[in-house]
Amino acid sequence: MCVTCGCSSDEGTVKFIGRNGKSSHHTHAHHFHTHDHGKHHHDHDKDHDHFHDHNHDHNHVHGREINLEKEILLKNDLLAERNRGYFDAKNIFAINMVSSPGSGKTSILERTIADLKNEISFSVIEGDQQTTNDADRIAAHNIPVLQINTGKGCHLDSEMISTAVKELAPKDGSIVVIENVGNLVCPSMFDLGENKRVVIISVTEGEDKPIKYPDMFYGSQICLINKIDLLPYLKFDVEKLKNYARTVNPTIEIFEVSATSGEGMDKWYSFLRSSLIK
Protein backbone atom coordinates (compact mmCIF):
# COMPACT_ATOMS: atom_id res chain seq x y z
CA MET A 1 0.00 0.00 0.00
CA CYS A 2 2.22 2.74 1.29
CA VAL A 3 5.73 3.84 0.48
CA THR A 4 6.09 4.46 4.13
CA CYS A 5 3.33 2.61 5.85
CA GLY A 6 3.50 -0.64 7.68
CA CYS A 7 0.08 -1.99 6.87
CA SER A 8 -0.34 -5.64 6.14
CA SER A 9 -0.50 -6.94 2.64
CA ASP A 10 -4.14 -7.24 1.67
CA GLU A 11 -5.42 -3.98 3.02
CA GLY A 12 -4.47 -1.58 0.32
CA THR A 13 -6.65 -2.69 -2.54
CA VAL A 14 -7.57 -0.19 -5.18
CA LYS A 15 -11.08 -0.53 -6.51
CA PHE A 16 -12.19 1.13 -9.68
CA ILE A 17 -15.78 2.28 -9.85
CA GLY A 18 -16.75 2.67 -13.48
CA ARG A 19 -18.70 5.49 -15.10
CA ASN A 20 -21.95 3.59 -14.85
CA GLY A 21 -21.46 3.23 -11.15
CA LYS A 22 -20.75 -0.46 -11.39
CA SER A 23 -17.70 -1.39 -9.44
CA SER A 24 -15.40 -3.32 -11.66
CA HIS A 25 -12.86 -4.28 -9.07
CA HIS A 26 -9.72 -4.83 -11.03
CA THR A 27 -8.27 -6.65 -8.13
CA HIS A 28 -4.77 -5.63 -9.04
CA ALA A 29 -2.72 -7.78 -6.78
CA HIS A 30 -1.40 -4.36 -6.06
CA HIS A 31 2.27 -3.94 -5.75
CA PHE A 32 1.27 -1.48 -3.07
CA HIS A 33 1.84 -4.14 -0.54
CA THR A 34 4.04 -6.62 -2.17
CA HIS A 35 7.42 -5.27 -1.16
CA ASP A 36 8.68 -8.68 -0.18
CA HIS A 37 8.81 -8.60 3.53
CA GLY A 38 10.62 -11.90 3.45
CA LYS A 39 13.86 -10.52 2.14
CA HIS A 40 14.65 -8.41 5.13
CA HIS A 41 15.21 -11.19 7.52
CA HIS A 42 16.92 -13.67 5.31
CA ASP A 43 20.10 -12.29 4.00
CA HIS A 44 21.78 -15.03 5.89
CA ASP A 45 22.91 -17.02 2.90
CA LYS A 46 26.38 -15.50 2.84
CA ASP A 47 28.19 -17.08 5.71
CA HIS A 48 26.63 -18.31 8.83
CA ASP A 49 29.00 -16.92 11.34
CA HIS A 50 26.58 -14.91 13.40
CA PHE A 51 27.58 -16.30 16.72
CA HIS A 52 31.22 -16.04 15.94
CA ASP A 53 30.79 -12.40 15.08
CA HIS A 54 28.84 -11.60 18.14
CA ASN A 55 31.49 -12.85 20.46
CA HIS A 56 34.03 -10.51 19.02
CA ASP A 57 31.88 -7.48 18.98
CA HIS A 58 31.05 -6.96 22.58
CA ASN A 59 32.61 -4.01 24.29
CA HIS A 60 34.68 -2.49 21.53
CA VAL A 61 31.81 -1.02 19.57
CA HIS A 62 33.80 0.59 16.79
CA GLY A 63 31.47 0.09 13.90
CA ARG A 64 31.52 2.13 10.73
CA GLU A 65 29.77 5.43 10.64
CA ILE A 66 27.57 6.19 7.64
CA ASN A 67 26.50 9.77 7.35
CA LEU A 68 23.16 9.97 5.61
CA GLU A 69 21.45 13.28 6.31
CA LYS A 70 18.51 11.74 4.54
CA GLU A 71 14.92 12.96 4.69
CA ILE A 72 12.75 10.28 6.23
CA LEU A 73 9.94 11.02 3.81
CA LEU A 74 12.27 11.40 0.82
CA LYS A 75 10.68 8.58 -1.15
CA ASN A 76 7.20 10.03 -0.67
CA ASP A 77 8.39 13.53 -1.53
CA LEU A 78 10.19 12.44 -4.71
CA LEU A 79 7.19 10.53 -5.95
CA ALA A 80 4.97 13.51 -5.09
CA GLU A 81 7.16 15.71 -7.30
CA ARG A 82 6.75 13.19 -10.11
CA ASN A 83 2.99 13.34 -9.71
CA ARG A 84 3.20 17.14 -9.78
CA GLY A 85 5.21 16.97 -13.00
CA TYR A 86 2.62 14.70 -14.56
CA PHE A 87 -0.17 17.12 -13.62
CA ASP A 88 1.82 20.07 -14.94
CA ALA A 89 2.54 18.43 -18.27
CA LYS A 90 -1.14 17.73 -18.80
CA ASN A 91 -2.34 21.13 -17.56
CA ILE A 92 -4.21 19.39 -14.81
CA PHE A 93 -5.18 21.23 -11.65
CA ALA A 94 -4.96 18.75 -8.76
CA ILE A 95 -6.38 19.39 -5.33
CA ASN A 96 -6.01 17.41 -2.14
CA MET A 97 -9.06 17.79 0.11
CA VAL A 98 -8.41 17.23 3.80
CA SER A 99 -10.62 17.57 6.88
CA SER A 100 -12.00 15.78 9.89
CA PRO A 101 -14.60 13.12 9.09
CA GLY A 102 -18.00 14.71 8.52
CA SER A 103 -16.96 18.23 7.47
CA GLY A 104 -18.59 17.73 4.10
CA LYS A 105 -15.73 16.94 1.70
CA THR A 106 -17.83 14.57 -0.39
CA SER A 107 -20.90 16.85 -0.34
CA ILE A 108 -18.84 19.83 -1.54
CA LEU A 109 -17.34 17.67 -4.23
CA GLU A 110 -20.71 16.32 -5.37
CA ARG A 111 -22.17 19.81 -5.59
CA THR A 112 -19.11 21.14 -7.41
CA ILE A 113 -19.19 18.34 -9.95
CA ALA A 114 -22.93 18.64 -10.51
CA ASP A 115 -22.63 22.39 -11.14
CA LEU A 116 -19.44 22.41 -13.24
CA LYS A 117 -19.28 19.11 -15.06
CA ASN A 118 -20.64 20.59 -18.28
CA GLU A 119 -17.71 23.02 -18.51
CA ILE A 120 -14.85 21.19 -16.74
CA SER A 121 -13.74 17.54 -16.81
CA PHE A 122 -13.26 16.04 -13.39
CA SER A 123 -11.77 12.84 -12.10
CA VAL A 124 -11.73 11.83 -8.49
CA ILE A 125 -9.60 9.72 -6.19
CA GLU A 126 -11.38 8.79 -2.98
CA GLY A 127 -9.47 7.74 0.11
CA ASP A 128 -11.16 5.97 3.00
CA GLN A 129 -10.19 3.22 5.37
CA GLN A 130 -13.13 1.09 4.26
CA THR A 131 -16.09 0.99 1.85
CA THR A 132 -16.67 2.43 -1.61
CA ASN A 133 -19.55 4.61 -0.38
CA ASP A 134 -17.90 7.91 -1.32
CA ALA A 135 -16.81 6.66 -4.72
CA ASP A 136 -20.33 5.39 -5.33
CA ARG A 137 -21.70 8.87 -4.59
CA ILE A 138 -19.28 10.42 -7.11
CA ALA A 139 -19.83 7.68 -9.70
CA ALA A 140 -23.53 8.55 -9.66
CA HIS A 141 -22.52 11.80 -11.41
CA ASN A 142 -20.88 9.83 -14.26
CA ILE A 143 -17.40 10.95 -13.31
CA PRO A 144 -14.34 8.66 -13.43
CA VAL A 145 -13.55 7.78 -9.83
CA LEU A 146 -11.21 5.46 -8.01
CA GLN A 147 -11.58 4.40 -4.42
CA ILE A 148 -8.48 3.68 -2.39
CA ASN A 149 -9.20 1.75 0.78
CA THR A 150 -6.26 2.26 3.06
CA GLY A 151 -7.28 -0.45 5.52
CA LYS A 152 -5.66 0.53 8.78
CA GLY A 153 -3.72 3.34 7.10
CA CYS A 154 -4.65 6.83 8.20
CA HIS A 155 -3.62 8.82 5.10
CA LEU A 156 -3.00 8.63 1.38
CA ASP A 157 0.57 8.78 0.10
CA SER A 158 2.15 9.75 -3.18
CA GLU A 159 2.66 6.17 -4.35
CA MET A 160 -1.06 5.46 -4.07
CA ILE A 161 -1.79 8.59 -6.07
CA SER A 162 0.77 7.68 -8.71
CA THR A 163 -0.88 4.28 -9.19
CA ALA A 164 -4.40 5.70 -9.07
CA VAL A 165 -3.65 8.42 -11.60
CA LYS A 166 -2.27 5.90 -14.10
CA GLU A 167 -5.48 3.94 -13.75
CA LEU A 168 -7.72 6.99 -14.05
CA ALA A 169 -5.85 8.55 -17.01
CA PRO A 170 -7.32 12.04 -16.46
CA LYS A 171 -7.83 14.27 -19.51
CA ASP A 172 -5.55 17.19 -20.33
CA GLY A 173 -6.86 20.45 -18.91
CA SER A 174 -9.03 18.73 -16.30
CA ILE A 175 -9.34 18.87 -12.53
CA VAL A 176 -8.21 15.93 -10.42
CA VAL A 177 -9.69 15.90 -6.94
CA ILE A 178 -8.10 13.74 -4.28
CA GLU A 179 -10.36 13.30 -1.28
CA ASN A 180 -8.05 12.27 1.52
CA VAL A 181 -8.93 10.06 4.49
CA GLY A 182 -10.97 12.06 7.03
CA ASN A 183 -8.24 12.91 9.53
CA LEU A 184 -6.83 16.30 10.49
CA VAL A 185 -3.47 14.99 11.65
CA CYS A 186 -1.74 12.34 9.57
CA PRO A 187 -2.42 13.49 5.98
CA SER A 188 -0.66 16.80 6.73
CA MET A 189 2.75 15.12 6.52
CA PHE A 190 2.29 13.47 3.14
CA ASP A 191 2.69 15.52 -0.01
CA LEU A 192 0.71 13.84 -2.80
CA GLY A 193 1.90 16.10 -5.60
CA GLU A 194 -1.24 18.25 -5.55
CA ASN A 195 -1.25 21.85 -6.77
CA LYS A 196 -3.30 23.04 -3.82
CA ARG A 197 -4.20 21.51 -0.51
CA VAL A 198 -7.73 22.43 0.56
CA VAL A 199 -8.69 22.07 4.21
CA ILE A 200 -12.39 21.96 5.00
CA ILE A 201 -13.91 22.86 8.34
CA SER A 202 -17.62 23.06 9.05
CA VAL A 203 -19.32 25.48 11.40
CA THR A 204 -20.57 22.59 13.53
CA GLU A 205 -16.97 22.08 14.67
CA GLY A 206 -15.03 24.28 17.09
CA GLU A 207 -13.70 27.70 16.03
CA ASP A 208 -10.34 26.80 17.50
CA LYS A 209 -9.68 23.81 15.27
CA PRO A 210 -6.95 25.64 13.34
CA ILE A 211 -4.87 26.02 16.50
CA LYS A 212 -5.75 22.57 17.79
CA TYR A 213 -4.57 20.99 14.53
CA PRO A 214 -2.18 23.65 13.26
CA ASP A 215 -0.07 21.45 10.98
CA MET A 216 -2.98 20.84 8.65
CA PHE A 217 -3.85 24.54 8.40
CA TYR A 218 -0.20 25.49 8.06
CA GLY A 219 0.22 23.09 5.13
CA SER A 220 -2.96 24.07 3.26
CA GLN A 221 -3.33 26.98 0.84
CA ILE A 222 -7.12 27.05 0.75
CA CYS A 223 -9.70 26.78 3.52
CA LEU A 224 -13.36 26.08 2.86
CA ILE A 225 -15.72 26.87 5.73
CA ASN A 226 -18.69 24.62 5.07
CA LYS A 227 -22.31 24.39 6.30
CA ILE A 228 -22.73 28.17 6.62
CA ASP A 229 -26.47 27.68 6.03
CA LEU A 230 -26.58 26.40 9.62
CA LEU A 231 -25.07 29.56 11.14
CA PRO A 232 -28.44 31.03 12.28
CA TYR A 233 -28.93 27.99 14.51
CA LEU A 234 -25.48 27.86 16.03
CA LYS A 235 -23.28 29.82 18.39
CA PHE A 236 -20.35 29.94 16.03
CA ASP A 237 -18.11 32.92 15.43
CA VAL A 238 -16.87 32.73 11.83
CA GLU A 239 -14.52 35.70 12.30
CA LYS A 240 -12.87 33.99 15.23
CA LEU A 241 -12.31 30.88 13.13
CA LYS A 242 -10.84 32.96 10.31
CA ASN A 243 -8.53 34.75 12.73
CA TYR A 244 -7.27 31.47 14.12
CA ALA A 245 -6.75 30.09 10.61
CA ARG A 246 -4.81 33.21 9.58
CA THR A 247 -2.71 33.15 12.72
CA VAL A 248 -1.54 29.67 11.77
CA ASN A 249 -1.27 30.48 8.08
CA PRO A 250 -1.49 34.18 7.18
CA THR A 251 -1.63 33.51 3.43
CA ILE A 252 -4.46 30.97 3.51
CA GLU A 253 -7.32 31.81 1.14
CA ILE A 254 -10.73 31.34 2.75
CA PHE A 255 -14.11 30.60 1.13
CA GLU A 256 -17.35 30.41 3.09
CA VAL A 257 -19.71 27.92 1.49
CA SER A 258 -22.69 25.68 1.94
CA ALA A 259 -22.78 22.54 -0.15
CA THR A 260 -26.44 22.15 0.79
CA SER A 261 -27.83 25.59 -0.05
CA GLY A 262 -25.18 26.48 -2.63
CA GLU A 263 -24.39 29.74 -0.82
CA GLY A 264 -20.86 30.99 -1.53
CA MET A 265 -20.11 28.22 -4.00
CA ASP A 266 -19.79 30.71 -6.89
CA LYS A 267 -16.56 32.13 -5.50
CA TRP A 268 -15.15 28.64 -5.07
CA TYR A 269 -16.08 27.85 -8.67
CA SER A 270 -14.41 31.05 -9.91
CA PHE A 271 -11.29 30.00 -8.05
CA LEU A 272 -11.33 26.57 -9.74
CA ARG A 273 -11.90 28.09 -13.20
CA SER A 274 -9.10 30.61 -12.80
CA SER A 275 -6.72 27.93 -11.45
CA LEU A 276 -7.26 25.87 -14.59
CA ILE A 277 -6.46 28.76 -16.91
CA LYS A 278 -3.12 29.58 -15.25
Binding site: V3, T4, C5, G6, I66, L68, G153, C186, M189
Partner: peptide, 17 residues
Protein backbone atom coordinates in the same frame (compact mmCIF):
# COMPACT_ATOMS: atom_id res chain seq x y z
CA UNK B 1 -0.97 7.12 13.87
CA UNK B 2 1.36 8.22 11.09
CA UNK B 3 4.24 7.48 13.45
CA UNK B 4 4.02 3.85 12.36
CA UNK B 5 4.52 4.97 8.75
CA UNK B 6 7.44 7.09 9.84
CA UNK B 7 9.01 4.23 11.79
CA UNK B 8 8.59 1.83 8.87
CA UNK B 9 10.06 4.37 6.49
CA UNK B 10 13.12 4.88 8.70
CA UNK B 11 13.65 1.14 9.00
CA UNK B 12 13.38 0.55 5.25
CA UNK B 13 15.88 3.31 4.48
CA UNK B 14 18.30 1.96 7.05
CA UNK B 15 18.00 -1.58 5.74
CA UNK B 16 18.81 -0.39 2.23
CA UNK B 17 21.99 1.21 3.60
Amino acid sequence: MHELSIATSIIKSAEVE
